[in-house]
Structures are given as structure tokens and as C-alpha cells.
């Protein structure tokens, strides 16, 4: 790459280590050398883990998969910010050129009571799946679908639904929220289906059930801090939370 700022950099890392949810955890300091500006943040952690493995030490557990910003699996708190300092970017997209050589970087897991810790930087986000199970779908069995073009959907409506559907389920909205609310995550799915004709039949039931499970899973209430929108790697708008509220209110008048 022509723009690569070559040369090696070094960093001090303070990483949260915790063997499981029942044991106490602590920040442990590590030093990494020979880091290239072009390396991704996760490749820097790979490099650290290789060094630890060679010494026979347990590597730092962290999760990632696609490493191109779409699977939603990566997600850690870097210097206090979910997914790190660059807006609208997943952790895997973050490059080391964003960090001055010699810097100390603090790395912690997403923290929320609805995301129990598994190990080190790995948390359990299955509460999101359970919220989806409560209504994040259109009840249509395979084989029942009508001809796709039988139902015209305006371009602007399709685009707006896509804006909400773009959520990758990473959980940064929850991790950034002082109340650990899942309102942005839930609102995005509610809005997608509230906009589309396919979502109308179950609109009331969906909002009622998803909100109930969201509460039951231990996510907090939304009090309009707006941190979620700022932390969202896909720039999901806080407007989705307004729609969530509207749709929930709608359930109260439609029994």
C-alpha cells in the first residue's frame, strides 16, 4: 500500500484478564513491539498472543470472525470506548496507525449484566438472540411466499428499512449505554418491520413481546444519553429508539 506508514511501533497494553464470570479479574500489563501502522488492532492482539503462546502462557481470549466489519463478533472496549476511538468502525476495522507509538492502551470487555463474561474479553451476548426469538421475524413458512414483485415497496421505504436492518448485533450500543439499555438494537429491528408491509400483521405482538423480553433479560431503560448512536459501528440512528417508543405505546392502546 502506497500510504502505509512503515516502521515499527511499540505499545503498552493494559488488558482485562478474568478466567470466568465467577472469578475476580484484573488489568494486566503487556508490552508489544514491532507493530506496523498498517496492522489491524486485532492483528496486534494476534501478535501478542503468538508471543504468549510461544512462552507457554495462556493467550488473551478475544472474539472475532469475518474481520471485515459485518459479522458483529468482535467488540471490546478500547480506552473506554466500545470499538475504540474511530466513529462508525468495528474493532476489526481499526488500524494501529490510529495510535501513537509508545501509547498505553487499555482494553476491556463489553460490560453489561445482560452480557455475562465468559473469559478475558469474551462475553455472552445470547440475550440478543432471546430478544429476537420474541418477535424479530415475520411469521411466514417456507413455501407460502407470494411472487416477490406482487407487493411494491417504495425505494425510500426499502432504503429506510435497510438503514435499520444494517445492525450487526455487536452489542456496542449496550456497552456504551450508562443504563446498559438494548433500545437501539431492539428499535432497529422494530423499525425495519414497522416500515415494511410484511411486518404489519404482527406489528403489535412483536413490539409487546420484544420489549418484555428485553426487560426480562436485564437490559436497562433508555434515558436519551445518545451514547449508543455514537458507538454504533453501523451508524444506526437514535431515531430507531423513537420508533421503538412509538410502537410500544401503540401496543398499549391496541389490545
Amino acid at each position: 500500500m502506497t500510504s502505509a506508514t512503515n516502521g515499527t511501533r511499540s505499545y503498552t497494553l493494559r488488558i482485562w484478564r478474568q478466567s470466568d464470570n465467577a472469578s475476580p479479574g484484573a488489568l494486566v500489563e503487556y508490552r508489544v513491539e514491532d507493530i506496523d501502522a498498517q496492522m489491524s488492532f486485532l492483528e496486534m492482539l494476534d501478535h501478542l498472543n503468538d508471543t504468549l503462546e510461544r512462552k507457554g502462557e495462556l493467550p488473551v481470549a478475544f472474539e472475532s470472525d469475518c474481520r471485515e466489519g459485518i459479522c458483529g463478533m468482535c467488540g471490546i472496549v478500547i480506552d473506554g470506548r466500545p470499538h475504540g476511538p474511530v466513529p462508525n468502525l468495528t474493532t476489526c476495522g481499526l488500524r494501529m496507525r490510529e495510535f501513537e507509538s509508545g501509547a498505553t492502551i487499555t482494553i476491556e470487555p463489553f460490560r453489561a449484566s445482560a452480557f455475562p463474561l465468559v473469559r478475558d474479553l469474551v462475553v455472552d451476548r445470547s440475550s440478543f438472540d432471546r430478544v429476537m426469538q420474541a418477535g424479530g421475524y415475520v411469521s411466514v413458512n417456507c413455501g407460502q411466499a407470494p411472487e416477490a414483485n406482487a407487493m411494491p415497496i417504495g425505494k425510500d421505504v426499502a432504503e429506510a428499512a435497510m438503514d435499520s436492518a444494517a445492525c450487526i448485533g455487536c452489542g456496542a450500543c449496550v456497552a456504551s449505554c450508562p443504563n446498559a439499555s438494548a433500545s437501539l438494537f431492539v428499535g432497529a429491528k422494530i423499525r425495519q418491520f414497522a416500515l415494511l408491509p410484511q411486518g404489519q400483521a404482527e406489528r403489535t405482538r412483536r413490539a409487546r413481546r420484544m420489549v418484555a423480553v428485553m426487560d426480562q433479560e436485564g437490559f436497562g431503560d433508555c434515558s436519551n444519553h445518545g451514547e449508543c448512536e455514537a458507538a454504533c459501528p453501523k451508524a444506526i440512528s437514535i431515531e430507531n429508539i423513537a420508533v421503538l417508543r412509538r410502537e410500544y405505546l401503540r401496543t398499549l392502546v391496541r389490545r
Binding site: Y137, V138, V140, A145, P146, A148, E159, F193, Q198
Partner: peptide, 9 residues
């Protein structure tokens, strides 16, 4: 057809 019925945008 199936994907559109599911609400794929």
C-alpha cells in the same frame, strides 16, 4: 419470493 416475504430489504 421467500426472502422478500421474510422482510429482506
Amino acid at each position: 419470493d421467500q426472502c422478500v416475504a421474510q422482510g429482506v430489504p
